[in-house]
Amino acid sequence: MGDDRHPRTLRTTASHHAARNRIEGRPEGNDTVRVPIKSDRDIIFARQKGKEMASKLGFSSTDLTLIATSISELARNIVLYANTGEIILGTVHQGEKRGLSVVASDEGRGIPDIQRALQDGFSTSHSLGLGLPGVRRLMDEFEISSEINRGTTVSVRKWVP
């Protein structure tokens, strides 16, 4: 089962474009999958793809569910708040460690107050407000950057235990 061995990171970047470039500047192997998100059906596809990749990396079935749930929340936010965007799935390495990286990126309205958006129960859509804070708990690393009217990028990772 998931545990708290890995520290969670939260980095908030003022400039969305700086973060985006950094993410896109990462070396991309041929194991990167980009899933365009345009409707709620794409949410299902994105989490299935994520599960597939994570399963190849050797994650436990509990971790697969945590990863798929996270992808679902991030993709749903794109559909709800930005209409369109994409989910970029990739494998990441750090020394011996291997993991899955999920980047949810859009060019929507952006988030005015990131700290608030990360609080349990905060929602501008009368929804549960558990998406972002929940994903932060489900994954090992969490990075978010957003700029008003420019877009939002949430980048998360989970390491194979």
Partner: peptide, 10 residues
């Protein structure tokens, strides 16, 4: 697994 994820999500 779903129950575990639900609890984690809150």
């Amino acid at each position: 697994e779903v129950a575990f994820a639900l609890v984690r999500l809150g």
